[in-house]
């Protein structure tokens, strides 16, 4: 029997919650094609994650909890997915367009000579095939796409689909055998260094971003730190002690412009824009960012944009729903205090 497959991304035995958005998209397709949704869960703790997928709307699950799959590696994951697709001929295979989702689905699509729609913003069944919209040219233009064939592989932009509210239920689970043994896998993970305070900008509902303007921090650099080093210190201090607290009260993440990243104010993982992350939070607060087109490319699909800039002519105001002209180092602390009071934190 055919099905809609949804790959549930996990890390250390826990599901990436954005995977539930993919389950919701799978249900939507399943409803129009009259097909069940099968959650695919590979690696550690797969059985428990499969039941969680059931709560979010999967009808059944296929799990494979094998030592070769404990940490994500493309080779064993893609070989297993390809084997399942070849054996069971699902109508579609869905996953969130995270870095792993992208490479896993594209690899298996190539193995099975299937059509692929990447990083889609919407999705629907269209006769025998699927239709989807994608953002191209750094989000400056959209494209409509159609795909057909036995199985269509689709990765979904995070936050483009809404996860269902969970309702616990027991779903039938089939276990699969791994497709490769350790001896057949060329990639070996020698070590893993977990990042502290990771940022997942693509999933964030609120993003507070800082730009070059973060350098104009009135705080004094420690004695002995002067010149460029003092500028960097001030900006870093501003990101950590002024922007981060605002992000914290909002339950959001901290972003940055490329100018701030290139100047060493904050690591590259925070960069928003054409050569950084593409984000679409409900609320984007740009602080000391001028709004260059390459920055806009990464954040233009944010629902509500707030710009804080001392230059009333800054292009960022053209994109903003709300504009605050002034010194971010005066406005942000006031805003953080006000939010703490109003949100009761």
């Amino acid at each position: 029997m055919s099905a809609i497959y949804v790959w549930i991304e996990t890390f250390k035995g826990k599901a990436n919650p954005t995977s539930w958005e993919a389950v919701a998209a799978g249900r939507m397709l399943g409803a129009s094609l009259n097909l069940p949704v099968t959650a695919l869960v590979f690696g550690e703790n797969a059985a428990a994650v499969a039941q969680e997928a059931g709560a979010y709307g999967a009808d059944n699950a296929i799990t494979c909890d094998d030592a070769t799959l404990t940490q994500f590696r493309l080779e064993p994951y893609a070989a297993l997915l390809t084997q399942l697709v070849k054996a069971n001929a699902p109508k579609a295979v869905l996953a969130i367009a995270s870095s792993r989702g992208r490479e896993l689905l594209a690899s298996s699509a190539a193995d099975t000579d299937s059509a692929m729609l990447s990083d889609v913003l919407d999705l629907s069944a269209n006769g025998d095939g699927l239709s989807a919209t994608r953002a191209v040219y750094a989000g400056k233009v959209l494209s409509d796409n159609a795909a057909s064939g036995a199985a269509v592989f689709v990765t979904l932009r995070s936050r483009a689909f809404k996860a269902a509210d969970p309702a616990p239920k027991d779903i039938p689970v089939t276990t699969a055998a791994p497709a490769l043994s350790e001896a057949q896998i060329s990639t070996k993970i020698e070590s893993f260094e977990e990042a502290v305070g990771t940022v997942n900008l693509s999933d964030a509902g609120v993003i507070v971003s800082g730009g070059r303007g973060m350098a104009n921090n009135p705080a004094n650099a420690p004695a002995g730190v002067s010149g460029d080093a003092a500028t960097v210190w001030k900006a870093q201090d501003g990101f950590a002690n002024v922007l981060q607290p605002l992000a914290d009260v909002l339950g959001g993440a901290v972003g940055a412009s490329r100018a701030a990243v290139d100047a060493g104010y904050i690591p590259y993982v925070h960069q928003v824009g054409q050569t950084g992350k593409t984000v679409s939070p409900d609320l984007y607060i740009a602080c000391g960012i001028s709004g260059a087109i390459q920055h806009q490319a990464g954040m233009r699909s944010s629902k509500v944009i707030v710009a804080i800039n001392k230059d009333s002519e800054a292009p960022i105001f053209k994109m903003a729903r709300f504009g605050l002209v002034g010194d971010l180092y005066q406005i942000i602390p006031a805003l953080t205090a006000e939010l703490k009071k109003r949100l009761g934190k």
Binding site: S114, L142, D144, A146, A334
Partner: peptide, 25 residues
């Protein structure tokens, strides 16, 4: 098996803009 059927411009942006002024507080 996959093809672009059309390119389209972005839907018009919400152009509402409100300037918020006063003291920082």
């Amino acid at each position: 098996a996959a093809r672009v059927t059309a390119f389209k411009n972005l839907p018009p942006r919400d152009t509402r803009f409100e300037l918020i002024s006063g003291t920082p507080e």
